[in-house]
Structure formats: structure tokens, C-alpha cells
């Protein structure tokens, strides 16, 4: 049982974090900073899971396990993403997302 802080606070916090991440995803040009924005988004989701778990159903552990899995997926995603970024950097000597428009019309 966790007292003092209502669930909605956690949710508001994660919402703000999520949309900050979205904003970063939309405006940053550097691929690595976009990756960081994605990490922010994932992290906000983790907070949601954990808060729901702890405050609404403290006797279960689903939220926590999903958080663990999300962290694992995030790690995998980050490693693959960075491999891709390095590959792109080797090819076009830049990681500016606006220069990667090969797949246009």
C-alpha cells in the first residue's frame, strides 16, 4: 500500500513526460536525440505500469514485470537503433534525419 500520492499524479507526470518525448521526436534533427526521445516515451510508459500496479493492485506484479520486459525491449531496441545509426553514418557521413529521404516518391 502506498499512501499520500494519488494515482492521477503519477499519470499526469507520465503524460507530460510522454508528450515531451513526442515533441522531441517531432522536432529533433539528430537521430541520436530522436532515440533519446523514444527512451523518454518508453520510460513514461514504465512509470504508468508501475504506478497502476502499486496503487491499484499491490498484491499482483504484472505492472512490474511488464516494466522489466519494456526495459529489456528498450535495451534491444537501443542497441539495434545505434547499430543502424552507425551504419547510416558510415554511408552518408551524417545522422541528420532530414537528409534521409531516399524513400520518397
Amino acid at each position: 500500500m502506498f499512501e499520500g500520492v494519488p494515482l492521477s499524479w503519477f499519470l499526469i507526470l507520465s503524460t507530460i513526460m510522454f508528450f515531451v518525448g513526442v515533441y522531441g521526436f517531432l522536432v529533433r534533427k539528430n537521430l541520436i536525440t530522436i532515440l533519446m526521445s523514444i527512451e523518454l516515451i518508453l520510460n513514461s510508459v514504465c512509470i504508468n505500469f508501475v504506478a497502476f500496479n502499486k496503487i491499484l493492485y499491490p498484491e499482483h506484479m504484472e505492472g512490474m514485470f511488464f516494466t522489466i520486459f519494456i526495459i529489456a525491449v528498450a535495451a534491444a531496441e537501443a542497441s539495434v537503433a545505434i547499430a543502424i545509426i552507425i551504419n547510416i553514418y558510415r554511408r552518408i557521413a551524417s545522422i541528420d534525419v532530414e537528409k534521409m529521404d531516399k524513400m520518397k516518391y
Partner: peptide, 17 residues
């Protein structure tokens, strides 16, 4: 309308969001 497929990832994301 072919300009919509600009290859710019962030435009797509913007539209999606």
C-alpha cells in the same frame, strides 16, 4: 499529391500524432 510522400520521417510522425 506525390509531395506528401516526402521521405521525411518526422512529417509522417507529425501527421500520425
Amino acid at each position: 499529391i506525390k509531395g506528401f510522400q516526402s521521405g521525411q520521417l518526422q512529417q509522417y510522425a507529425m501527421v500520425f500524432v
